[in-house]
Design a protein around this nucleic acid. Sequence first.
DNA 1: GATGAATGAGTGTTCATTCAT
DNA 2: TATGAATGAACACTCATTCAT
Lengths: 213, 213, 213, 213
Amino acid sequence: MSSSQDSPDRPLTERGARTREKLLAAAREVFEERGFPDTRIAHIAERARVAYGSFYTYFPSKQAVFLELADRLFAEMTDRGALPAGRSPAARIRRANRAYYEAYLRNARMMAIVEQVATLDEEFQELRRKHRARSITRTARALRRWQREGLMPGDLDPELTARALAAMIDHSLYLGIVQGDDPPDTERLLDTLDLLTHRALGLPAETGSGGLG
Amino acid sequence: MSSSQDSPDRPLTERGARTREKLLAAAREVFEERGFPDTRIAHIAERARVAYGSFYTYFPSKQAVFLELADRLFAEMTDRGALPAGRSPAARIRRANRAYYEAYLRNARMMAIVEQVATLDEEFQELRRKHRARSITRTARALRRWQREGLMPGDLDPELTARALAAMIDHSLYLGIVQGDDPPDTERLLDTLDLLTHRALGLPAETGSGGLG
Amino acid sequence: MSSSQDSPDRPLTERGARTREKLLAAAREVFEERGFPDTRIAHIAERARVAYGSFYTYFPSKQAVFLELADRLFAEMTDRGALPAGRSPAARIRRANRAYYEAYLRNARMMAIVEQVATLDEEFQELRRKHRARSITRTARALRRWQREGLMPGDLDPELTARALAAMIDHSLYLGIVQGDDPPDTERLLDTLDLLTHRALGLPAETGSGGLG
Amino acid sequence: MSSSQDSPDRPLTERGARTREKLLAAAREVFEERGFPDTRIAHIAERARVAYGSFYTYFPSKQAVFLELADRLFAEMTDRGALPAGRSPAARIRRANRAYYEAYLRNARMMAIVEQVATLDEEFQELRRKHRARSITRTARALRRWQREGLMPGDLDPELTARALAAMIDHSLYLGIVQGDDPPDTERLLDTLDLLTHRALGLPAETGSGGLG
DNA sequence: GATGAATGAGTGTTCATTCAT
DNA sequence: TATGAATGAACACTCATTCAT
């Protein structure tokens, strides 16, 4: 996953690479603690234990560090590497939803900041669109396969369906976890999302599963 | 006898009321054009053709005008006053979705700013939560009725379901209209949302409807 | 004691006079509560239960109300009307000091504001100088008489002595009462001031009085 | 590694230290010329020939520079380092009064501002109280010694006496020098203060001194 | 007289970024 | 590279005073 940031002009020395990573880690911490607008370069430098000016040795701007952090984050959030294929649609949906939920929880604070920056920064919006598109495409591909295999009715547009369901999952987690629209019974929420997804896609009922109890 | 210096939230004279409305209208315009952080009080005052200080005669802060605008907006967005009751669930969902979509389109620019401020301002988040909760409650009530009437399976939690589906609609419209994640064929998007909602809720198929063509 | 303020241009109606007094009383209250710089015309008007603009019907500025209040205050502070003459110097000093102390206590808050404005406002300084001079002159006259009567050594300049002792009393009370340089045992403080004054003036010892012991 | 943005009260480099001193000197000049409330940070920066923002590199606020200047000033005003001990009380009083007077003259403009800020700023009042207390304690110690040595009657409370006499000197100089309550014959004023102090303390008459001529 | 709306100049402080060392 | 000092434009908010009704 190539970064949308240009790499620093010259290859870094060993020491430079370490300083750069320190700055990235520090930036993430501070962003999480204070949000994007309230983060000062001074905070990041201080946290990384480098001089103020050193920040600009490695990043051209506050926006730039964030973009790089977000790029890594998006990669992790949509990484399905570990998911075993070849299961039933229901199982795959459940696995994917749980995996996404786990990742969301792990990165909840950053996801809040991501949402923040998404409303403020055009360049960042572009980055996010790209990631989203990639993810949607992948999902749409699976839907199309299920349609071909007769597991799912053909009257749903795979692209739009993928988009809508992703929006449902994403925004539900955002509101539930980040915005804390009353702290929900997470298990029930996830079960509901699975079930809604399952039924919305018109997938065959699984024996003995999917109910919310 | 409240001081006129401490922004008498309710103007005492006809003239004052007029000025206040001018300011609200101007604020909305400027917010839409420049976003919340880039809006200057000077812009608002200028647009309203009043002196700089007059803004503060009626609003204690930039945040305050926005809060009032958003409050009105939310009221409009969730106003279901005109929707005829007593239709089939499918018809009601379709009507509600279309109505919401129309409202969204009418207020697209403001909705973008709303999302922006939602990530920045805690007090605003609270206001929004309240509106959302009211809307969710209303939807959940309908779902429960449909469950009682046997139109919808009982294994779905009405509350969580309402939340999830609202998230789907809301965020789909946000991404499609505000963020412009490729300009979509709106009709197809809406049809997809209707259909997904319909199936997710396990509603009885309507003869001659629901297909996306 | 004529005010340094011009009276309002036209004689007031009965009602006007009442409003004016309400404003004066309100102003004093607010000044005492918030100090001069932090007092807003709005506060005064509100407290007096008149409209904002009405303040300016009776006073040309914030400074002007304060000047008038201070003028009255100074008159009260230095009013020796009730002090019986013809006592021994020691007794007169003690009476004067006590009377001044009583007045100071009664008006402590205003005295604080007076000190404040004295550092900020030239016109007010002038007013104060005038009052002080009058008071000093009166004291110096007494000192001169005591010198003529042989009760007090002639090597002290009556004018400068009066000034210095007034400064001692005044500033001691200011620091003790207004600035609260540790809350003193007032009785002991007053006794000390009496005794110091008495000795500084070289007055004949009084039998059985004046000790602090 | 403290942030350079959060006003590193102690500059880390030689250059920084120089800039800081330039700002202090400039601030003193401007305060003296315009008084505290009318001093703008812009004036200070301009006078120091540094950029506006550089002020905030070294001081967090206007109040803060003033506090530091006042702290230095108080130290100088009450520095009795050079006063030879072991003289007669009369001589010591005279020396101390003259020394204080010299210092007062040298710093007259600042003393005016000090008085101003003392009425406006609570934190500054605290600083001043501390300095005053230190000074009073020192004087009281001397008085107590004189009492033990039988040079001064024991019926005076040393603490309160020190306070009262300091108030006399201080306020007399303030009114005479700062407020210019008619430009006095300074020599006569000082002689009067010496004499009053001497007699108030009941010190033994010195042969050939103490008269005002 | 009384009311309260209208005015707009004024200012402390922030902070991303640049630069000299 | 590393450091930390220097820069200065930008902005929300205040409030005494004026003025139209």
